[in-house]
């Protein structure tokens, strides 16, 4: 089922001045329910603009954004409710923390929704569990947490609104490997628990290969590729031409095939490669 449809959307910054910059040019994509969609592209490819369109922070200059088949800008006054249904986690979200305690900060979104206190508490605890934040952190000041914990608290603040679509812009940027994994695991748990459509923006092809079902490749403000993981990664030469590269494992598989080894080209993660290669080696020992 399609959750969000982006139809022929375009956007230009500083339109009509000499500084005019095209951010999105006739972009059409579809985001499915129960699916993790990855958006890949260079800095300046229009990703950030697109991400802020899903929840109505940026209004398209032409084209439409449909949420469950309805144009979100049909009634501009009710754009606020769209922001609760489509949760957006911006880059480095820990810089938005401001309350005295972690629990109050995570409650900020649900409170703005006008939920009653019991429901807020329930959602906050649920969100903490999803992102893997210990409950004894809740009474601390958000500024006393470690970098990775702050990030998780900020993501929990959006999850606590229980959005039907969760959009995350570079959720793991700047974290160490352990921190990265815990963030992505939390996102996956949210997707599994709620069936929400999840959209992840990332530079890392390896993370994309590991977590995403569908992929959108943006290049020079246009959709260069859109399809499932297999469809996109099979066009590895084009990806390299855009300068994005392919997952490291896919690169390894390409090298093996070049050497005449019969291995399926549709392998993107360590686990998949391990299984395939073990089979080639006769199932290991």
């Amino acid at each position: 089922m399609s959750k969000i449809k982006v139809e022929n959307v375009s956007f230009v910054y500083s339109a009509g001045t000499p500084f005019e910059v095209k951010a999105l040019d006739d972009v059409t994509i579809e985001i499915k329910e129960n699916t993790i969609t990855g958006i890949i592209g260079h800095t300046g490819s229009g990703k950030s603009t697109l991400v802020q369109m899903f929840n109505g922070l940026v209004k398209p200059m032409s084209g439409r954004i449909l949420l469950d088949g309805e144009d979100i800008w049909e009634k501009p006054k009710s754009i606020g409710s769209v922001r609760y249904r489509v949760g957006l986690v911006m880059q480095y979200p820990e810089y938005q923390l401001f309350e005295d305690t972690v629990i109050e900060d995570i409650s900020f979104g649900p409170k703005n929704m006008g939920l009653d206190p019991d429901e807020i508490k329930k959602r906050v605890l649920e969100a903490c569990e999803l992102v893997g934040l210990d409950f004894d952190m809740l009474s601390k000041s958000p500024f006393d947490l470690s970098g990775g914990q702050k990030r998780r608290a900020a993501i929990a603040g959006v999850m606590a609104m229980r959005p039907e679509v969760l959009v995350l812009d570079e959720p793991a940027a700047g974290l160490d490997p352990a921190g990265r994994n815990s963030i992505f695991d939390g996102i996956k748990r949210y997707a599994d628990a709620t069936g929400a459509a999840v959209i992840i923006v990332s530079h890392s092809m390896d993370d994309m290969a590991k977590y995403c079902d569908e992929l959108v490749v943006l290049s020079h403000s246009k959709v260069a590729m859109f399809g499932n993981r297999k469809e996109v990664f099979s066009r590895s030469r084009e990806l390299e031409a855009i300068g994005l590269g392919v997952p490291q494992i896919t690169r390894l598989v390409m090298l093996l095939r070049d050497k005449g080894i019969e291995i399926s080209p549709d392998i993107y993660t360590v686990d998949e490669a391990e299984t395939a290669l073990a089979a080639l080696f006769g199932g290991g020992v």
Partner: peptide
Amino acid sequence: PLCSDLLIKLRERGI
């Protein structure tokens, strides 16, 4: 690194 990880896992399988 992912490729090193893969080869180590294969080695752990006894390959």
